[in-house]
Simulated scan of single mutants.
Amino acid sequence: MSMHEFEDLVEMSVNCLDQAGEHGSFEQRSLFWNLYQFQESWDTGFTHLRVIDTLLKHRFVYQFNIEQHPEYSAHKAFFDSIQDFTFVNLHPEEKWHSQTNPAAGYVKPPHLFCDAGSPLWQRFVELGELTGNDALPPATIDIVDMVKEVMLAAKAEGDRELVSIWYTALGAQICMTYSEQEYENVKKNPSLDVIRDMVQEMKALEVNPGYGFLEQPTPDLIKEDPFLSEWFQISE
């Protein structure tokens, strides 16, 4: 079952970044790429179409006519038969494989789409269809730096709830996937100090708008767990 809380968090973040405008250390195109990488690290579905106009606006997603697919002429019958949303693998009509034949783009008739950094985007770059900044891959951003940028946008928009949810989400990511040494490295990242300052300034943890995996843990659970006690700054 899809973890809708992470899907909703990324959707809210994309909208917030768009409303706040370019203001931070990273272009929104790269922030969007990293947000969806974060989303895909959890059990989530494909949600680009919820905010497709925003993703197109910031040139994270590119839109073409189906006939512009580099393999269209070789797979005309396949492409012409598409009636609804579908993913298109790197080698159309061949079985999907995460390593040798990954999903390269997607179709929602009459349009073909590809994300910056995707295999289909790379094909368009190689063919000279995408040039200049559009031919540059999105930058990989450390998750702590990414969360800081989203939180800064949320603060600019007065979105206390988004700040609260992201603080819980970052804690969940660290708790579930980081080693002790990796967590120690996180503590050395100056962005974490900025994040915690924002959380304290906005009294963000006084609201608990998250649900599912992103609902704040109960006080009893926090007190029992050393990481949670430190992360949520619970004193005895």
Rank of each mutant, 00 (worst) to 15 (best):
A169S: 04
A169D: 02
A169T: 06
A169Y: 03
A169V: 03
L170T: 05
G171Y: 00
G171Q: 01
G171M: 01
A172K: 14
A172V: 14
Q173K: 15
Q173A: 15
I174S: 09
I174C: 06
I174D: 07
C175V: 13
C175N: 15
C175A: 14
C175T: 12
M176A: 14
M176L: 14
Y178S: 10
Y178P: 04
S179D: 00
S179K: 01
S179I: 00
E180N: 15
E180P: 14
E180Q: 15
Q181P: 09
Q181D: 13
E182P: 07
Y183C: 10
Y183V: 07
E184V: 08
E184G: 08
E184W: 05
N185V: 10
N185F: 12
N185H: 12
N185R: 13
V186C: 06
V186I: 05
V186D: 02
V186E: 02
K187V: 07
K188L: 03
K188T: 04
N189I: 05
N189T: 09
N189Q: 09
N189Y: 10
N189M: 05
P190R: 03
P190A: 01
P190Q: 01
S191L: 03
L192A: 03
L192P: 01
L192W: 02
L192D: 01
L192T: 00
D193N: 07
D193M: 02
V194D: 12
V194S: 11
V194F: 11
V194P: 09
I195G: 01
I195Q: 00
I195F: 03
I195N: 03
I195C: 00
I195A: 02
R196Y: 02
D197E: 08
M198L: 11
V199P: 02
V199W: 05
V199K: 02
V199I: 01
V199F: 04
Q200K: 13
Q200C: 11
E201G: 07
M202S: 06
M202F: 09
M202E: 08
M202W: 10
M202N: 08
M202K: 07
K203A: 12
K203I: 10
L205A: 03
L205K: 02
E206I: 05
E206R: 10
V207A: 08
V207I: 10
V207G: 07
N208T: 10
P209W: 04
P209Q: 07
G210N: 05
G210E: 09
G210S: 06
Y211D: 13
Y211W: 14
Y211N: 12
G212Y: 04
G212L: 04
G212T: 04
G212A: 05
G212R: 04
F213Q: 15
F213K: 15
L214R: 00
L214P: 03
E215I: 05
E215C: 09
Q216C: 14
Q216T: 15
Q216K: 14
P217Y: 11
P217T: 06
T218N: 11
T218P: 10
T218F: 11
T218H: 12
P219N: 00
P219H: 01
D220E: 14
L221Q: 15
L221W: 15
I222Y: 04
I222L: 07
I222T: 03
I222Q: 03
I222N: 06
I222R: 03
K223V: 07
E224V: 04
D225F: 07
D225H: 10
P226T: 13
P226L: 14
P226A: 14
P226Y: 14
P226W: 12
P226C: 13
P226M: 15
F227S: 06
F227D: 04
F227R: 04
F227N: 08
F227W: 08
